[in-house]
Design a protein around this nucleic acid. Sequence first.
DNA 1: AGCTACTCCTGGTAGC
DNA 2: TGCTACCAGGAGTAGC
Length: 287
Amino acid sequence: MPELPEVETVARLVRPRLLGRKLGGVTVTTPRTLGGLSRVAFGRAITGARVGVVRRRGKFVVMELERGGRSAGALLVHLRMTGRLHVEAAGTELDPYARVCIALDDGNELRFVDVRRFGRFLWTARPELALGALGPEPLEPAFTVEWLAGALAGRRGRLKSLLLDQTFLAGLGNIYVDEALFRSGLHPLRASDRLGDREIARLHTEIQATLIEAIEREGSSFDAFYRTPEGRPGSYQHQFRVYGRTGKPCKVCGSPIQRLVIGQRATHVCPRCQPRVKKRLRQRTSG
DNA sequence: AGCTACTCCTGGTAGC
DNA sequence: TGCTACCAGGAGTAGC
């Protein structure tokens, strides 16, 4: 599902097609996708504006708009489960699940397609307010081992739930949390404030490594939904160590991968590589 | 603060 | 073959 690597891929690929383009007529077939703003207000806010910046923040694609050299707010696109962004020639066949279409001044259209209607295509005058609740970006300099240590110590929940919390750290979802925890040798039920320094350093390293490798492969596509804006599937699903591998042998130790449910989320762990208790304590109390 | 449960939504698939 | 039931899942909300 679209998480940081998929959203990063989408933002990179639509960026050259959108930068500098002037937005024209808007068609909205599914009003709820706008998140409460009326179609009229939405159209008025963006028509005639130009795309100044295309970037990613957490799982949002952010398109900053300007009009006459001044900020005209921003479009925030959240793909949720099945959302897709395309730039296609106007007049080409419209996907039946197209929710929002915006004409561009070069004869193309920006189209937001979303089968399950969970996705959002929002306009906000103050993007920094709308995005302000998000935690730090895991691939930016503010995400240091020291920050992570302090942040984990200040919370008491389960590691998995915390890493899924976008206000704690922005961009991770179910897949990459499971993968990063496995690579760190940490059980998802471990308490966030009970990690050792070396465990925290490992977690920091593996979160970044997992995301970087997934971005290099343009994200993960294992069902009919996620595709790059150019229609290609990502290929990181071939690198999964635990996600979706229930019952299959761990690639490190051969133990069958277990499926748990934590916080209503399917969770995949290797029971041997990810012990529920800290390794050091375990050795002391065993034998 | 943080837990569970529920909701949204629909295509895909497992089981009969 | 055709039906039903359930699963996937990010985020928001309610209630404890």
